[in-house]
């Protein structure tokens, strides 16, 4: 007579053997916590977003018949296009300036600092230990009507009346974003610059390259991965940024993130808000692909 208790250890042993042999199963088991978080935290909300974007607002509730009317509105009504373009413009400029300003800093630490490098990096990222909101408010104090810049210029006598374009404008948003996200540029830039083999630079010098040519032919192409990841790390989140334009943008500095928030808040049109989020995501993905393609081309060209 074969009892249940006899077969069980065999089955368990078989499973264990299969598990030990299969690398894929081990891999998935190892990933499972992260995978679970990804599914619950990203995939499910994304599906909800896609489904909801095809509904229609109906008083307090939703009309759940699928329709693409929201996407049609997003494509035709001028406000959506304008705000989307403005968001890309603002965050594009912010990305450009951040990378431009952070590159020399990262370069200096990577090539000219030989002791306590970690301390330098920590010091550079020190301002980012305060909260994002606090940094935005700090810029309000600096750029404000009676702020640091205006009072300084007034007391020196460079201006007669406070400069009003400093606050509540796109300029204010770009300045603040460029500062607030600097840490996300310095770190990847530093890592990629640090990895460059110094003997390549010596070789270039031996073969007759001046400092500028050496930088263009060796340092820049080899640090390109850092530049690209810095651009992505800044461009993607800043495009949808909500708090900086809300506090510093004024009427003309509103970005697409603010419009999406409004759809979920006072305007009370969640389906439209979902559709706008999806449109934004699609645009960012498309722009990122184009950017990746162009930088790859440029890299091939340089190398």
């Amino acid at each position: 007579m074969v009892s249940v208790a006899d077969t069980e250890p065999i089955a368990r042993g078989r499973f264990a053997r299969w598990f030990r042999r299969s690398e894929a199963a081990q891999g998935y088991a190892l990933m499972s916590p992260a995978l679970l978080v990804l599914i619950i935290g990203i995939a499910v909300p994304l599906i909800i977003l896609v489904v909801m974007s095809m509904w229609t607002r109906d008083g307090f509730g939703f009309d759940m018949t699928p329709t693409i009317a929201n996407y049609q509105r997003a494509a035709t009504e001028p406000i959506f296009g304008t705000l989307l373009t403005r968001s890309f413009f603002v965050s594009g400029l912010a990305t450009f300036f951040t990378v431009l300003l952070c590159y020399p800093m990262a370069y200096y630490v990577a090539f000219h600092v030989h002791r306590n490098k970690m301390l330098w990096i920590v010091l550079m990222t020190l301002p980012f230990w305060t909260s994002y909101l606090l940094r935005v408010f700090a810029w309000r104090v600096i750029l404000g009507y009676e702020g640091v810049i205006n009072s300084a210029f007034l007391s020196v006598g460079w201006i007669e009346a406070p400069l009003e374009f400093l606050l509540y404008s796109q300029t204010a948003v770009i300045i603040t974003l460029a500062h607030a996200w600097a840490a996300f540029a310095i770190l990847p830039l530093y890592v990629s610059l640090e990895k460059i083999d110094k003997s390549l630079l010596e070789a270039a010098t031996d073969l007759g390259d001046g400092p500028f040519k050496r930088f263009m032919r060796i340092t820049l192409p080899l640090s390109m991965p850092g530049v690209i990841s810095a651009c992505f790390l800044i461009f993607i989140p800043t495009t949808g940024d909500y708090i900086t334009p809300a506090l510093l943008g004024g009427p003309d500095g509103v970005m697409i993130g603010n419009l999406i928030q409004l759809q979920f808040g006072p305007v009370n049109n969640w389906p439209m808000g979902s559709a706008l989020s999806i449109v934004l995501m699609a645009w960012i993905a498309a722009l990122a692909l184009v950017f990746l393609f162009l930088t790859r081309k440029a890299k091939d060209h340089l190398a």
Binding site: I79, P251, L259
Partner: peptide, 13 residues
């Protein structure tokens, strides 16, 4: 809802 939507449009220009 319509009022809020319109006011938001106006604020954005």
């Amino acid at each position: 809802s319509r009022m809020n939507e319109t006011y938001e449009l106006i604020k954005a220009g």
